[in-house]
Amino acid sequence: MDGQQRVGVLVALPLVLQELGEDPARLIAGAGIDPELLHNPENSLTFVELGRLLEACVTATGCEHFGLLVGQRSTTESLGLVGRLMRNAPTLKDALLDLCTNQKRYVRGAVAYLVVQDEIAFLGYAVHHPAMLAIDQLSDGAIAVGFNIISELSGTAPDEALLARRAPGNLAPYRQFYGSTPRFDAQQNALAFPASLLTHPVRGADRELRKTLEKLVASYWAVEQPSVAQTVTRLLRARIVFPNTSLETVATELSMHPRTLNRRLQAEGKSFRDLMSEARFQGARQLLEGTRMEVTEIALALGYAEPSSFTHAFHKWSEMTPSEWRKHGNAGLDRLQ
């Protein structure tokens, strides 16, 4: 499954390339994509195409913060109908849930999530497409989009940006955009801010217009809804680095009894245990490849009480230890395919 990503803010990508001295049409076409596709924010790219394009952009420009440069040009307008819905939400929480709930309609392969823990809210973004390239660039862009959205809707910027990638050589663009240095080598790509901000009313929201927009959003992307297994995969990828992620908590999120969730997964030939393992494996691979986190830190982040248990599980998944995977990079993934 290639997954898909709405073009949205990517309409700014050709301009960023031009500003960096590249020929946008030539480079985009060279990545196997019709340049015209990026002229309409309602078009879509597959995740394979998007990863290939972002990787080509970084290679050609030598710009390690390319994703940030694209994402920082966003507003709620970049999100189309969902952005309009968000601008007419009663509170910031309602607006962010609009984004997280409707994202599955036009994005397959990544998940936006809102989690509150210990009075801190996290608006995060996690890729679960198995063959995505340039995850650091896509995530940089997504977190920049989230930063602009929260600032626009609440009038207050998030406290901190967490990025699950190694720090690039030039930190100045990040400091300039976020107002401080993000926390690199983090266990998730997310924005952290006080949970109390979620109750902040969205200025200028129109209740009646929102009712109309809710119907438009539902009908505009009248696509096949994700299966139960796909829905659980999205939830697990979003919550895998948070404590107490279990069958019970996921079932509660889906308003199901745990036994009902198990039965529905079994009907699709899946099990919760296997989906949890897949989510941990994806999370582990991305943290090993993208960050400088120690293996022990990654094990704890993914819910393992002992690093040895994590190493055993990772070897079972990949026939390699975590350290070997980090050393060989994507060669490990090629071995599995």
Rank of each mutant, 00 (worst) to 15 (best):
M1F: 04
Q5S: 08
L10A: 02
V16P: 12
E22A: 04
E22M: 08
E22L: 07
R26E: 11
R26H: 04
L27R: 14
H39S: 12
N43Y: 05
S44G: 06
S44C: 12
F47G: 06
E49I: 00
L50A: 06
L50S: 08
G51N: 07
E55Q: 15
E55A: 06
A56D: 12
V58N: 14
G62H: 07
G62P: 11
C63Y: 07
C63L: 02
L68K: 09
L69T: 04
Q72I: 01
Q72N: 07
T75A: 08
T75H: 13
E77F: 10
S78W: 06
L79D: 00
L81G: 06
G83E: 02
L85F: 11
D94W: 12
A95F: 07
L97M: 13
D98F: 10
L99Q: 03
Q103I: 06
K104G: 00
K104R: 15
V107P: 06
V107F: 05
V111H: 03
V111M: 08
I120V: 13
L123W: 06
L123V: 00
A126P: 05
A126M: 13
V127N: 08
P130K: 02
M132L: 11
D136H: 07
D136F: 05
L138Y: 03
L138T: 00
S154T: 00
S154E: 02
S154G: 04
G155A: 08
P158A: 01
P158N: 05
D159G: 10
L162M: 13
A167C: 13
N170M: 03
L171W: 13
A172P: 09
F177C: 07
Y178Q: 07
G179H: 08
D185N: 14
A186Y: 04
A190H: 08
L191S: 04
F193S: 00
F193R: 10
S196Y: 06
S196N: 13
L198C: 06
P201Q: 01
V202R: 09
R203I: 01
G204A: 06
E208R: 15
E208V: 11
L209E: 07
R210P: 11
T212K: 15
L213P: 03
L213N: 01
K215G: 04
L216F: 14
S219A: 05
Y220L: 11
A222G: 04
S227C: 01
A229M: 09
Q230F: 01
Q230A: 10
R234Y: 08
L236R: 02
R237A: 14
I240A: 07
I240E: 12
T249F: 03
T252V: 11
E253M: 13
L254I: 11
M256N: 05
P258T: 00
A267E: 13
S271C: 04
F272Y: 14
A279F: 03
A284I: 00
R285N: 09
T291W: 03
T291M: 09
T291C: 04
M293D: 13
M293V: 02
T296G: 08
E297C: 06
I298G: 02
F314T: 02
H315V: 03
S318N: 12
S318V: 09
M320F: 07
E324N: 09
R326Q: 15
H328L: 12
H328Y: 14
A331G: 10
R335D: 13
R335K: 14
